[in-house]
Design a protein around this nucleic acid. Structure first.
Length: 515
DNA sequence: CCCCCCCC
């Protein structure tokens, strides 16, 4: 013990610096005032710290894991970056000594540590052959914890895990006169089918290996680490920071959980494979995603948001308990109640534009479908014309022209409505496809109203996330063919996830070709 | 020391 020198209590009469062998310490045994320890660690992650605006590089950073699974961040001056970048290789294990300590910056914390190691010119690094060290260190947030984290001022950056729900293409924004920014969103879905977008920026957006991902066995579990949480377009977003790294199917317990849940669901019944791209031929489009209503009704709508289905179905009943239209105030946008003055916006009289709305019940599975103008084109005439025809404009009184739809048969294209309450899912009419369009086939090909559903790409009304499907309750062996039959062009594959990205991008973001 | 993580 006499060889041990505590630098804090060493008498000051020591001649020059005393180089004494340092003692091994686990990371939990380090203290910011103690210079007498060395550590043995795996290099887990490394990155270049940046400063906004401009994202100019500021320092070299890394995260180190010791044998017991503890983690510590270490920083070095930017001028030492090349050396440490070279001497510290990801996943290699090293003995490190001669480091200092600093208080961990509250901004962009990667770990729940009070101090961070500092590396510099006295730092000595020796490679070790023992590699029996942990490969990962995560502190996952659950979906329902994200909001609380978002509210917190300087929370620790967020680690998150789930299935890859969809992979978007790179989008480019801005230009020479502002900032040129590229981004790529990747939806991450948990076991409750909540989807959170993870955003990669610029080079990282480009460098995401689409092709590699597309080749991977589905489903793919994705872990994203050290993400900045923010709200974008009203929904929560995991934004990549410089410290971020992401991992496919990392060997952690949560990955096993997700894969086990997938296999269990997969073993219990057939799954949808849906075609999410609009088909150019009317005949093909008309039969796209002909999934029986009975099947759709057993599906979690959250997994099929914005996917368009078609079905030829009979209108069993008009829901006369539902108002067949409603009026919207042209000033505040609020819903008007028939017979009630909207005096706060229109002092003397109300002249709002009518917007029709009615609910019909349709089809083999008795599904409830809401129909909004103008998607009712081809089913009923213009709502204003209809209103002119009826004597009683009370929206509770369904006109005969609408009641006459009962027992008529049509080809509906529709999507799931935003799930609100418990009970069977409901649908939203998107298009009546009884007859091919007579004119303007291209212009009428897409939905003409703003998106009804919240989704990852809220701004793109043509967006539909790729398909995913939870259990449809049937006792089908895992490798048995799906019992549901689909038109051949759908490919009746029994597959929970599609092999690739398949968004309906008929508009591409503005691209600047001056790189 | 502060600003401060890129997009609607």
């Amino acid at each position: 013990m006499s060889l041990t020198v505590d630098p804090v209590s060493t008498p000051i009469n020591t001649e020059g610096p005393v180089i004494l062998p340092r003692q091994f310490a686990y990371l939990t045994e380090l203290s910011p005032a103690d210079n007498s320890k060395y550590i043995q660690v795996r290099v887990y992650r490394k990155w270049t710290g940046v400063k906004v605006p401009g994202f100019t590089p500021t320092n070299f950073s890394c995260i180190l894991l010791d044998k017991k699974g503890s983690a510590v961040q270490a920083n070095a001056d930017l001028k030492e970056k090349d050396r440490f970048d070279h001497d510290l290789q990801i996943n290699n294990v090293y003995k490190i000594q001669g480091f200092g300590f600093e208080r961990t910056d509250s901004w962009g914390k990667t770990l729940d540590n009070d101090f961070t190691l500092t590396f510099g010119k006295y730092t000595q690094i020796d490679r070790l052959t023992d590699t029996d060290y942990p490969y990962h260190y995560f502190n996952f947030a659950a979906f329902n914890e994200l909001n609380a984290r978002l509210e917190k001022k300087n929370p620790i950056l967020t680690d998150y895990i789930g299935y890859v729900h969809n992979v978007e293409k790179v989008k480019e924004y801005g230009g020479a006169t502002t900032s040129r920014i590229k981004l790529r969103n990747i939806g991450i879905r948990n076991l409750n089918n909540d989807v959170v977008p993870f955003t990669l920026w610029n080079e990282d957006a480009d460098n995401f290996k689409d092709d590699e991902y597309a080749q991977m066995k589905q489903p793919v579990v994705l872990v994203v680490s050290s993400c900045y949480l923010k709200r974008y377009a009203g929904q929560i977003q995991l934004s990549a920071t410089s410290a971020n790294r992401y991992y496919f199917n990392p060997d952690v317990q949560e990955t096993s959980e997700l894969l086990a849940a997938y296999n269990k669901a997969n073993a219990s019944g057939p799954h949808l494979q849906v075609q999410t791209e609009r088909l150019t031929s009317w005949d093909q489009e008309k039969t796209r995603n002909r999934v029986p209503l009975g099947t759709l009704l057993q599906i979690d709508p959250k997994t099929q948001q914005r996917v368009l289905f078609t079905q030829e179905a009979t209108v069993l009943q008009i829901d006369t308990g539902h108002h067949w239209y409603y009026q919207k105030c042209d000033e505040c946008g609020g819903k008007l109640t028939y017979g009630y003055l909207h005096g706060q916006c229109h002092q003397y009289e109300t002249k709002p534009n009518p917007e029709n709305r009615m609910v019909i019940t349709d089809g083999t599975g008795n599904a409830l479908m809401s129909c909004f103008t103008p998607q009712t084109d081809g089913l009923i005439k213009d709502v204003n014309a209809l209103l002119n025809e009826v004597e009683n404009k009370d929206p509770a009184i369904t006109p005969p022209a609408i009641l006459a739809l009962q027992n008529t048969r049509h080809v509906f294209q529709f999507q799931f409505a935003t799930p609100t309450t418990k009970g069977p899912p409901t649908f939203i009419l998107k298009k009546i496809m009884d007859n091919p369009p007579t004119a303007l086939p291209a212009a009428s090909a897409g939905p003409s109203s703003p998106p009804v559903l919240q989704s990852i790409t809220e701004t793109d009304e043509h967006y539909t996330p790729p398909p995913v499907t939870p259990t449809v309750t049937q006792d089908t062996p895992a490798d048995a063919p799906a019992t549901t039959s689909y038109p051949p062009e759908l490919g009746a594959k029994k597959q929970l996830f599609p092999p690739s990205t398949s968004e309906e991008h008929d508009r591409s973001p503005k691209k600047q070709k001056n790189e």
